[in-house]
Nucleic acid binder design. Structure first.
Length: 272
DNA sequence: CTTATTCCCTGATTGC
DNA sequence: TGCAATCAGGGAATAA
C-alpha cells in the first residue's frame, strides 16, 4: 500500500531519472475502468504528446509531474498501483495500464492489479490537492499543528490520522507504526490526547515516516520502487502485520482489531 | 459539520 | 484436490 514514504521514494527517483525528458507518446491498455480520471482518455493522450517533464512533486500520496506548459500530470497509486521506469525494448509487465514513452526511448509505466489507481491531467493542481491536510514532514508541521488536526475530533485517533483532509499522506501501515512508537492506543478519541501524548505522536509520525523514506519504503504485497526493486522498511515494522506475535518491546502479543474499516495493530502492553 | 458504512477490484488465503 | 467464500485496503460516495 503506497503511502507517503513510498510516493516520496518514487518522487526522488523520478527527479533523478525523468525530469527534463519529453513525453513522445502515451499508450493506454484497454479495459475498464480507465486509469485516466481526467480528462477523457483520448484528450489525455493528445495532451501528453510533446510535453516536457519540468519537475516532480508530491502532495500527500499524490505524485505530481509538472509539465512545461504549466499543467500537471497527477498520479495516485491507491492500493496496488506501481510506477516503473523501463529501458527501451523492455517487455510489458502484467497489469500494465498506461505507458508514457519518453524521448530517450525509455518508458514510464503505470501498473495496477486492483485498478484503483488513477491519473489526472489538470491545468491547475490545486483542484486536486487543496482539500488535503498538512504535510507531516513539512517544517511548519509543529506540535501545535498536530493539536489543531486532533482538536474537536471524537473519532479514534487512528481514524483521524488516516483522514487525508486532516493529515496528508499517512495510511494504514504508518498510522499503526506511529501510534506504537508514541505509545498511544489507536482507539483513543483524538481530542483526548494529553499535550505530552501529542508531542510523542508528533515526533513518532515524523520519525517513522522519515525512517521509511530512508529505507526506500515498505514492500509488503505490492509496492516496488521505480526500477522494480523492493524497499527495506518492511523489516522495521513493529506492529503492522504482526498480530499474535510478541511485541518487540514488552513481549505482549500484538492485537489486531478493525477500526475505520481497516486492520489495526497495536500492543496492549505498550499503548495506553 | 461529524462519524460510520459500503463499494470498487482481484490475487491470496481460508474453509469445507 | 477443488471450488466458493472471505479478506486486504485508499478513498469516493452514501447514510445517519
Amino acid at each position: 500500500m503506497p503511502e507517503l514514504p513510498e510516493v516520496e521514494t518514487l518522487r526522488r527517483q523520478l527527479a533523478a531519472s525523468v525530469v527534463g525528458r519529453t513525453i513522445t507518446a502515451v499508450e493506454l491498455a484497454p479495459g475498464s475502468p480507465s486509469p485516466i480520471a481526467i480528462p477523457a482518455p483520448g484528450a489525455f493522450v493528445a495532451a501528453m504528446a510533446g510535453r516536457r517533464i519540468a519537475g516532480v512533486g508530491r502532495r500527500g500520496k499524490y505524485l505530481l509531474l509538472a509539465l512545461d506548459d504549466g499543467s500537471t500530470l497527477a498520479l495516485h497509486l491507491r492500493m496496488s498501483g506501481g510506477l516503473l521506469h523501463r529501458p527501451p525494448g523492455t517487455a510489458p509487465e502484467a497489469y500494465l495500464r498506461a505507458a508514457l514513452r519518453l524521448d530517450d526511448g525509455s518508458e514510464l509505466r503505470f501498473t495496477d492489479v486492483r485498478k484503483f489507481g488513477r491519473l489526472w491531467h489538470v491545468p491547475e493542481v490545486g483542484l486536486l490537492v487543496d482539500g488535503l491536510g498538512p504535510e507531516p514532514l513539512a517544517e511548519d508541521f509543529t506540535v501545535g499543528a498536530l493539536a489543531a488536526v486532533l482538536s474537536g475530533r471524537r473519532a479514534p485517533v487512528k481514524s483521524v490520522l488516516l483522514d487525508q483532509r486532516a493529515l496528508a499522506g499517512v495510511g494504514n501501515v504508518y498510522a499503526d507504526e506511529a501510534l506504537f512508537a508514541a505509545g498511544i492506543d489507536p482507539r483513543r478519541p483524538a481530542h483526548g490526547l494529553s499535550p505530552q501524548e501529542r508531542k510523542r505522536l508528533h515526533a513518532a509520525l515524523r520519525a517513522v515516516l522519515g525512517a521509511a523514506i530512508e529505507n526506500g519504503g515498505t514492500s509488503l504485497r505490492d509496492y516496488r520502487g521505480l526500477e522494480g526493486e523492493t524497499g527495506r522498511h518492511q523489516h522495521e515494522l513493529r506492529v503492522y502485520g504482526r498480530a499474535e506475535q510478541p511485541c518487540s518491546r514488552c513481549g505482549t502479543p500484538v492485537r489486531r482489531v478493525v477500526l475505520a474499516g481497516r486492520g489495526t495493530h497495536f500492543c496492549p502492553g505498550c499503548q495506553k
